[in-house]
Design a protein around this nucleic acid. Structure first.
Length: 416
DNA sequence: AAACAGTTCAACCGCTCATGA
DNA sequence: CTCATGAGCGGTTGAACTGTT
């Protein structure tokens, strides 16, 4: 059933690549581009299937691949994006320059997943494990909305990936490869592009890449929270992932989680770290000094992936958006409820939300206490970072999530 | 030193999606 | 619209490596 394996043909080699094979593949692609992957092995003199060649190139031989240990910054990004996108490795890889989806996937499965599990966090849901069952009760609504929002981001990432591919194709057409193609017009660059995600760097990123020192690491409040380490640096530093449509710009703002979050956080992770977690803490602490909060600031305060209403009305701060999503995820306080979810649809107006929120706040204060604060902290961290990120050049630091904060975001109906 | 268990990661497999005839 | 084909994605495998007994 299904299509027969592409390597089924007799004589096609499988298994680890030899240096000679690598050399052949590299030499061929450097000279001709890969063109059609299916046709490449024969032309390059390789006894491999095209699929295998493509994989070897995209995951290993490509010159723009960064290998070696993942930085804490990268870990943070992976965790945050995984919380929002799930196992969509290619989409995640879009935001991790020079990393392949395969590498990210492996790293998640072998490192991050285990760490989260050890800390009592379900790596699938990013919830405290004890909360996993709870979600079935009254939080389905919130979950649905989370899903809805995640769809925005997913759609945006996909669109971005397409843009990048197109852009790269255009870029490629001007590159030396083009020259080579002119010499060998029969070859086409095809979709080299997509070599997954890591090649799929936004033009701006590509332009700024060479030699550019990495910016300050994006903050992962999750980590900060887990380890009770707070940035001492209030200065605002922005890390823009430079994705043309990115909602994921990280910034440093020296703003930590507010109110009870820190305590809750410490309770969840800091004091109960198991050995491995403790190691991570040490690692994190070393690097944490350079971290700060997130800010919402690219695109001049606009959020290109959101419907205009969200970005055009006054007072609709991204930090608030993040807070709202956080609240939604936490499924608790009305203050944390996403503005877009006041009633049955996102079309509900802000005023309505405020009224409802006020009524619900009192009732839900009690519930809040029942809810594990650790879980809030966790989601606060992830969602603040992910959602507050949009992109702009000068937006203010995020209105970080506060348990009692007014939540204003998602004013009108979202994109379908 | 040997055997075993656990971990890592490159590579494979099978499926879906996109595209063009 | 349907079908064929190529490419990409995510899950899984297994060899190599590392740690433990």
């Amino acid at each position: 059933m299904g299509r027969s394996p592409c390597c089924e043909k007799v004589g096609l080699k499988k298994g680890p690549w030899t240096p000679e094979e690598d050399q052949k593949l590299l030499a061929y692609i450097e000279k001709h581009g890969h063109g059609s992957w299916r046709a490449l092995p024969a032309k390059a003199g390789l006894q491999r299937c095209g699929k295998s060649c493509r994989l070897r190139w995209t995951n290993y031989l490509r010159p723009d691949i960064k290998r070696g240990e993942f930085s804490l910054q990268e870990e943070q990004t992976i965790i945050q994006l995984h919380a929002l996108l799930g196992n969509r490795w290619s989409a995640i890889a879009t935001h991790l320059p020079k990393r392949t989806d395969n590498e990210i996937k492996n790293y998640w499965n072998t490192h991050l997943k285990k760490r989260l599990a050890k800390m009592g966090i379900d790596p699938c849901t990013h919830k405290a494990k004890s909360d996993a069952l709870v979600s079935a009760d009254g939080h389905s609504k919130s979950a649905a909305n989370l899903s809805h929002m995640a769809q925005w981001e997913s759609a945006r990432l996909e669109a971005e990936a397409r843009l990048v591919r197109e852009s790269k194709l255009r870029t490629a057409s001007n590159s030396t490869i083009l020259q080579q193609q002119q010499e060998q017009p029969q070859h086409q660059m095809g979709s080299s592009s997509s070599s997954s995600s890591t090649t799929a760097l936004p033009p701006a990123l590509l332009a700024s890449k060479p030699g550019a020192p990495p910016g300050p690491p994006p903050c992962l409040d999750v980590l900060r929270a887990w380890h009770g380490v707070w940035p001492a640096k209030p200065a605002i530093e922005r890390v823009d992932l430079e994705s043309p449509t990115s909602t994921l710009s990280f910034a440093a703002a020296g703003v930590g989680l507010v109110d009870g979050n820190a305590a809750a956080v410490r309770h969840q992770g800091g004091e109960n770290l198991e050995p491995e977690s403790a190691d991570w803490k040490c690692l994190a602490k070393d690097r944490m000094d350079s971290f700060a909060g997130f800010s919402v600031d690219a695109f001049g305060g606009e959020a290109p992936w959101l419907p205009e209403p969200y970005t055009s009305q006054e007072g609709c701060a991204w930090g608030q958006f993040g807070a709202g999503l956080t609240g939604l995820l936490l499924g608790d306080s009305g203050a944390q409820k996403p503005l877009g979810y006041c009633g049955d649809s996102y079309a509900t107006r802000r005023e309505t939300c405020e009224e409802e929120d006020e009524e619900e706040e009192e009732e839900e204060e009690d519930e809040e206490e029942k809810e594990g604060e650790a879980k809030k902290s966790y989601w606060n961290s992830i969602l603040n970072s992910v959602n507050s990120s949009s992109s702009s050049n000068s937006a203010p630091a995020p209105a970080f999530y506060n348990n009692s904060a007014r939540v204003d975001f998602l004013r009108r109906s979202p994109v379908p």
